[in-house]
Every structure is written in C-alpha cells, then in structure tokens.
Design a protein around this nucleic acid. Sequence first.
DNA 1: TACTCGTGGGG
DNA 2: TCCCCAAGAGT
Length: 346
Amino acid sequence: MNKEVNFSENLLKWYDRNARVLPWRVPPNSNKVSNPYFIWLSEIMLQQTTVVTVQPYFDKFLSKWPTIFELALANDQDVMASWAGLGYYARARNLLKCARTVVREYDGKFPPCYNQLIKLPGIGPYTASAILSIAFSKSYAVLDGNVERVISRYYNILDPLPSSKELLQSLAQSNLSSLRPGDYNQAVMDLGATICTPRKPQCINCPVNLSCKAKELGDPAGLPKKLQKKAKPLKFGSVFIGFNEKSGYLLERRKGKGLLGGMLSWPSTDWSECSDINPPILADWIPVSGNVKHTFTHFKLELSVFKATIKKPQKPYFFVSSESFNVNDLPTVMRKAYALYLKSIK
DNA sequence: TACTCGTGGGG
DNA sequence: TCCCCAAGAGT
C-alpha cells in the first residue's frame, strides 16, 4: 500500500469516528445531502474566523434568511448589522452581492462548476473547492491554513509559505479521495484543528503519525515555515458620540469600500500616525476619560472619545432613535467607544 | 507580489 | 503583554 492511499484511508477512518458536529455539516456516512446554501454561508463566515466565533452568527443568519432567496431580498443595512462583530466586512458586502447574483443568474442554485463559482463575489479558490467537494462531491482539494500545516508536516516541506502553496495544493489534491472528496477535505481540516495544531501537536493521537515525515525526522511544531511579517504601526484618531433625548444618537454610514466599509459608525476623524481631535461637527464636545485601544490586522489604533448634546443632524450624519439604536449593530471598535461613553455618564 | 481587511483566544 | 493564528479574498 503506498503512502497516499495510507494517508487518505487512515484519515477518513479517523474522521468517521471523530468528525466534529457542526450545524452546517452532514455527519459522515449519514446518507444526508449537504445544503449548498448552508455550506456557502458557513464557508464565507469561516474565512479567517474560528468555528466558535462563527456558530452564533450562522444560527442568526439562518433564522433571519433560511434560504438564498430571502437573503437576496434582504437590505444591505440589515445584513451589515447582522454581521457586526464578525469582522472582515467585505465578506458581508460580497455575501449579499453573491446571493443576488445566484438568484438572478442561476435560479438560486450554486453552479457546480469551478470556473463559474470563482467568478462570484467573495468566492475564491478555497471556497469554490469547499462548495464543490462538500456540497457536490466533486474532486477538488481545499488548501486552507489547516491543510497547509498538515501537508507541510506530513511531507516535511521546509520551503516557507506562501511560496510553497502550489506544491502543498498539488500534494493535497494527490491524496484526495475521489469517493469522498468532501469528507476528505473536512477530515484534513478537523485534523489540523484538533490534533495537528500550530503549537504542541498531539502526534500520539494522529491517525497518520506512522507515515508523517516531520514526525519521523523533523520538527512538526516548527512547520510550516512562514515569511516574517512586518510590524504594526500605531495610529490615532477621535470619535464623537452625539446624543439628545428626542432624536437619539448621531451616526454615520461608512463608505462602501475599505476599512469597516458599509458599517454604522460614530462620526470620526481619519486615523493616522498623528493624533487628530478636530470634530467633524460643531458642538460643545467634552472629552471622555480613558481611550479605546484596538488592534486591526495591520495596525494598532488608539481612539480619543468625545461626547456632546447635538441639536440637528449635519449632512452625512443622521440620528438613530434611542429605541432602535443597538450598539451591537456597530463594529467592535465602535462598541468599545460606546462602552467608554456609558461609563462616563454613570 | 504584497498589501489590505477584524476580531478573539491561547500560549 | 505581545505575538500567533483562525475553513481567505480582493486588489
């Protein structure tokens, strides 16, 4: 028996006994069919996001929009508010674009074809392969962070990411089970998430430890090697929380691209290496004690917070009544500013 | 290619 | 406290 068969067979045997129970997943050997809408929605949410974080959002989206047809009819603000806190908000914008395209162009059915899937907004090589293998049983191996780690260890690949990606993709594909491509992909990812972890891999419990190259002659925990990342600069800015009893809170809708694009936000200065406390609205602004510290993917941020009673809305800004205001409609960094404001008025 | 794009948890 | 990383995609 060659090593490739060994890997795939042992992995699937392990998966049959140890597959995690997830709301979007069909258990192995259950004779149930995956719902492509569930698979797509979960895969978009799971991009760079942990299963634990995704679960409540997945449940919320399914309860509000049980099928792609309802989602396609949702309004943008509702979807963005429902995504708030999950991060990478381009995913939410593309999610809605994609749902509308699939309903309009494909009668609400995801095309079981790589070249068509990859053209849809928010669907890249990973997500296209995940949908094809899990929902349509087609032979496409996924390459995500888990697979990169498992495969680079199994073959002891010493070249650093991302240059080794092409090789890892072909190795993952060469091992794929054509009978159970979806289970194979999910099995590798489950293995990476639970056994072949970034630190302190539990090789003793690994179903393929007897043929793993890194375990045999290398350092599994040291793989995959990655190129060094650059340091995060520190940026500063100010946000302004305006309120009055009658009208509610003064907010803005951030422009549709870039950081926090499309999200509800407190009026804010730009964020840069120099601190800026010039309010975009005229009022008697009072500094709120303390500041907001927040870390984004590529920079750190410190925000000063100001409060004032605002009489009239001023152009791009608008009031949201106290009754309909929900701080959880805001991204996390803006929730932090609100928490500071609440502390200051108590 | 390399950079942009959130957030929370673990070591 | 800080760094790493998590079912990546878009530009």
